[in-house]
């Protein structure tokens, strides 16, 4: 599912073709799917001993998977859904998170993000967060409906992207070390973080996890050597994970223990 970075695409014909592919993907995959047993992945890799072996080991630790549409936003959408779902059952943590999110708005405005448009995304994000606990609490079904409504779901993704961009720029001295090819952090954020549909890697994960104080564990499932079990990484390092994601090259889905 590796996509050519759009920065290299100028040709209108190629862009048009890419739009058509996006449309096809959207027709097949819901933005956030239903929970399925992890073993359902075994069917996809029946002829592949490496994947089968790794998946069997993984199924000893994780019970289920929830697929996220592979549209380049899967990291952010998967993170958002998974964490919000957790908050529905954790009233205290919800209150803390509400306060953290409240703080992000002024932080981003003070960093020079345009107030007018930022507020639009913040308001939509906060509206959903406010209903993850307390009196007007939504249920899991409604959360799923919200994440499958493209308009609202994409607004949530945008705000998470802006928070990530803000964190990367605020802690530029640290994150600069990950940058390749002489790009400035501002340029990187403009090209790889803020625009929708751009894929994420560990840098995005560390920044988002640190900004919102949420631990993320990513399990890597790929064609690498058969090891004892698929490698896991926590972002930020040494955190207690609250969100579990399965990474297969180019794509993230949600995992459940």
């Amino acid at each position: 599912m590796e996509m050519v970075p759009e920065t290299e695409i100028q040709d209108e014909g190629i862009l048009k073709q890419q739009r058509e592919i996006e449309k096809e993907v959207a027709e097949i995959h819901p933005l956030v799917g239903n929970k399925q047993p992890l073993t359902c992945l075994l069917k996809e890799y029946m002829d592949d001993p490496i994947y089968t072996n790794k998946l069997t080991k993984l199924a000893g630790v994780y019970q289920s998977i929830r697929r996220v549409r592979p549209d380049g936003n899967c990291f952010f959408r998967g993170f958002g859904f998974s964490y919000f779902e957790r908050l529905l059952d954790n009233e205290e943590e919800w209150k803390t998170f509400q306060a953290i999110v409240m703080g992000t708005k002024d932080q981003l405005i003070s960093q020079g993000f345009p107030k007018f448009t930022l507020e639009d995304f913040f308001d939509s994000f906060m509206e959903v967060v406010n209903r993850l606990g307390g009196e007007g609490k939504m249920d899991a079904e409604e959360l799923s409906r919200i994440f499958n409504d493209a308009g609202t779901s994409d607004y949530l993704v945008v705000y998470l992207r802006l928070v990530t961009s803000g964190q990367l720029q605020k802690e530029e001295d640290f994150y600069q070390n990950f940058l390749e090819g002489g790009k400035s952090m501002r340029e990187f954020c403009q090209q790889e973080v803020e625009p929708m549909y751009r894929e994420s890697d560990h840098m995005h994960a560390i920044a988002l996890g640190s900004a919102l104080k949420v631990g993320i564990r990513v399990v890597y499932l790929d064609r690498g050597e058969i090891t004892t079990s698929p490698p896991e990484h926590d972002f930020p390092e040494d955190c207690t994970p609250s969100v579990y994601l399965l990474y297969r090259p180019g794509h993230y889905d949600i995992l459940y223990k």
Partner: peptide
């Protein structure tokens, strides 16, 4: 095109085009 950010609004779009009139980019 490829550097679009959802934080741009109509006002930002129009002022960007206005600056393009002052500073053309003859390389693309």
């Amino acid at each position: 095109q490829n550097r679009w950010s959802p934080t741009y609004d109509v006002s930002a779009i129009l002022t960007s085009i206005q600056s393009l009139l002052s500073d053309p980019n003859p390389n693309s």
